[in-house]
């Protein structure tokens, strides 16, 4: 094991981890935007809306992300839709996290005490007001710990983007390992960077959790 090699590979690995962070953040944002309507859809009394949301969530949670990426990257060109590698990765990561986040949000919404909702209705608030003022603020508190896990899983899931030519942290590590024949050192270095990313994320989420539940104490 050559410690020097870990040190020397760092600049290139750090540069490529920008793409990893980028993919994580953008896909989480798109995923969250899709997740709220999906979660509400799962809880909807309309059979079609609930059915669609159910099918969506079960497809994306029930198949491996790698298969979804390959389907979009290698599969879609067969029917004439050729997306570039970045768009394919972002699309599959976003659609995938949307399904998981929807379930987290649904759990959070269902955890809100029924009595509070009933009282809010009794106070004369309409459904939109109840959602905005009573359900969603509490849902965030309930859902945050689980969502923190989802963020961490998403950071690691971006490594699959390396399978479709993207030079994210894993992609760069594989290239460097192949160039140097020193996979131990290079993948250790990449592992350290992932660890730092995951550790700081979990710290951030813990801090947010404390803030969001402050009123409950």
């Amino acid at each position: 094991m050559i410690l020097n090699l870990i040190y020397e590979s760092m600049p290139q690995l750090l540069k490529s981890s920008i793409l990893t962070i980028h993919l994580t953040c953008i896909s989480l944002i798109i995923g969250a935007c899709l997740a709220l309507p999906l979660a509400l859809g799962r809880l909807s009394k309309n059979r079609w809306v609930a059915g669609f949301s159910f099918a969506y969530v079960y497809y994306f949670r029930g198949t491996p992300l790698l298969v979804q990426i390959f389907l979009i990257y290698y599969g879609l060109p067969q029917i004439g839709l050729t997306l570039d590698a970045y768009t394919s990765a972002l699309l599959s990561l976003s659609l995938n996290t949307a399904a998981y986040t929807a379930e987290i949000i649904r759990g959070g919404i269902q955890a809100v005490a029924a009595g509070e909702i009933e009282s809010a209705h009794a106070m004369g608030l309409n459904r939109a007001q109840v959602l905005r003022r009573i359900i969603l603020p509490q849902m965030i508190g309930f859902a945050l710990p689980a969502y923190g896990n989802e963020i961490i899983l998403q950071i690691k899931a971006t490594s699959l983007a390396s399978t479709i030519t993207l030079m994210d942290l894993t992609g760069m590590a594989r290239t460097l390992a192949a160039e140097t024949y020193a996979p131990l050192e290079i993948f250790c270095a990449a592992g350290i960077i992932y660890l730092v990313m995951v550790f700081s994320t979990s710290k951030l989420v813990t801090w947010m959790e404390r803030r969001s539940t402050v009123y409950r104490c």
Partner: peptide, 18 residues
């Protein structure tokens, strides 16, 4: 430059016009 795991995937992407 785009790098591929296998030459077969590289051929596939030349065919796909990527």
């Amino acid at each position: 430059i785009k790098t591929y795991d296998t030459n077969e995937n590289c051929i596939l992407d030349l065919k796909n016009k990527r």
